[in-house]
């Protein structure tokens, strides 16, 4: 038998063997990684429910993991890097700190992994494998300003708590709030501004605000920690008059504060829809279909009037409307 023919036969034999070995394996479903800012917060549990709903519709698997505590940027970076090592089908990320996460995300993008950033934007421009599904911060700021303005009848002094210059979402929210307030309620003055602090120091911050400006009429808590801090400070040193408090965020504590009557309303992100749309966008990217570069979802306003509405609860309490 000629030598070439023998070699050809050998190659065919090996190919047949490998084929037989490969045929015995079942194809694994695609896995999409979801890495929110932190694991236990209600906002991210709702996002998780949204991603699971989308995953069950599309027949994909969700890998969900996050830092145990908000602000643990290093842990979130390591999770993002791990997603790259796992070669997942895509990443849905809610960045805890946009500057620190920029390089890890860019590395994933360079490896052609589809990435959807949710909740708070990053400075990376959209590209075919990068899209944003964000909270509409302009609307959030305007709603907050309108609520405070109408509550104070267009006159009074307010304090801002929870300013975080390192998070674009909070900064955009703040600017929208200021612009709307200045335009619609010029007689309302912002008398105090405080940067964001951790959940423990927020009480100290709030106490300082209340002590420095005893005649404050309203407060806007730009994150849940600030609202909780106000509550704790109020418990320590009760103010002589009730102030209007509007909070931003999505946390079980805010629900409890609303139920107790301490805050007047809170404005939550629609993280359930964000999660659902993000998974959908990842799969569209993988199929080469067009995806909107930037989507802004309207917030959910929870007040004493609608807090028991099952439709609202289904969106903010991680309770599915149908079995998964």
């Amino acid at each position: 038998m000629p030598r070439t023919k023998r070699c050809f036969l050998c190659v065919r034999g090996l190919a047949l063997l490998l084929c037989c070995l490969g045929c015995g394996r079942h194809p694994q479903p695609l896995t999409i990684a979801v890495v929110p800012e932190s694991a236990p917060e209600q906002i991210w549990l709702d996002e998780h429910a949204g991603t699971l709903r989308a995953a069950s519709h599309h027949g994909v698997r969700i890998y969900w993991n996050a830092p145990d505590r908000e602000g643990d940027v290093q842990r979130q970076i390591s999770l993002v890097e791990q997603v790259g090592d796992q070669k997942d089908a895509g990443l849905v990320l809610a960045p805890a700190q946009e500057l620190a996460l920029m390089l890890p995300v860019r590395r994933l993008l360079d490896r052609h992994m589809p990435v959807v950033i949710i909740s708070s934007p990053m400075t990376l421009p959209p590209r075919p494998n990068l899209a944003y599904i964000l909270n509409d911060e302009d609307q959030t700021g305007a709603i907050a300003a309108r609520a405070i303005g109408s509550s104070l009848h267009g006159k009074g002094s307010i304090a801002l708590l929870g300013i975080n210059p390192f998070q674009s979402g909070v900064t955009l929210r703040l600017r929208a709030f200021e612009a709307y307030l200045h335009r619609e309620y010029p007689a309302i003055r912002i008398t105090d501004r405080r940067v964001a602090s951790d959940s423990f120091s927020s009480e100290q911050t709030a106490a300082e605000v209340l002590a420095a400006t005893p005649r404050i009429d309203a407060a806007l808590a730009l994150d849940p920690s600030s609202a909780i801090g106000l509550y704790q400070a109020e418990q320590q040193q009760p103010t002589r008059h009730r102030i209007t408090i509007i909070a931003c965020g999505q946390d079980a504590s805010l629900f409890a504060l609303l139920k107790s009557g301490f805050i007047d309303a809170y404005i939550a992100q629609d993280s359930y829809t964000m999660g659902y749309q993000a998974v959908d966008a990842i799969l569209r990217m993988r199929q080469g279909l067009p995806v909107p570069a930037r989507v802004a979802l309207g917030p959910i306003v929870i007040t004493a009037a609608n807090m028991h509405d099952p439709a609202i609860l289904a969106r903010i309490a991680n309770i599915p409307d149908e079995p998964l």
Binding site: I228, Y231, Q232, Q235, Q236, A252, S253, F255, A256, L257, K259, S260, H308, P310, L313, A317, N318, I319
Partner: peptide, 26 residues
């Protein structure tokens, strides 16, 4: 009832335990 369960957990836990009340001996 998932809604009632969530509400009861949230209100019972978050108000009574997560936020320490004022302490006269502070």
């Amino acid at each position: 009832d998932p809604y009632q369960s969530w509400l009861s957990v949230v209100t019972a836990a978050k108000l009574s335990q997560s936020f320490p009340a004022a302490d006269a001996s502070a």
